[in-house]
Amino acid sequence: MQQNKQTVKNNNHKILRRGVLASVLMVGFGFALVPLYDVICDITGLNGKTGVLAAENVTEQNIDHTVVVQFDGTVNSDLPWSFKPEQFSMEVVPGKLYHTEYVALNQSKADVTGQAIPSVAPAKASIYFSKTECFCFTEQLLTAGEKKQMPVTFIVSPDIPKDIDVLTLSYTFFNKNRMTAEQQVAGNASHEEIEI
């Protein structure tokens, strides 16, 4: 009987070790889902983020249908800028490179750095939409009152399904200055006092 108890005890501890290991692995799995999600989004266009294409990889092709591409600029209310596309929409032929510009203006009396985040609607169109040049790849610094043209060069893939005849490229500009750790904490603490 004593022997038996020892075996049971050993087996219990074996299960305990495996259980703990499994839980730790599952925490790792949880974190692994973050890059995995990005990969899935890249492949399926799940969240509407756009792809990037090096200019030399673009081969222009002629396609018989066109797609309307709309441009939209959103400014997060944390950022004292105005930001608009030069033209609202464009009819484009898939497989050809196009160029357009946005205009950003810092309306405040301080220098501010912004970062634009692109998004395409419908999300399923995003995998067929690539940019070869975009201001969203880097942070943008505008001095007080500065106005800046921001160019975008893009191509719609010839593989785009025929039932997508309109897509919107939208940029949201966020205030990068608000992104430092300290300010982030303060920014999220809605109960902290506004010093007035």
């Binding site: 400014v75 004292p80 105005s82 200055n177 303060a186 920014g187 603490a189 809605s190 506004i194």
Partner: peptide
């Protein structure tokens, strides 16, 4: 910055 006060400029 750091509060619930939005920028109303836009």
């Amino acid at each position: 910055p750091g509060t619930a006060m939005q920028a109303f400029g836009n």
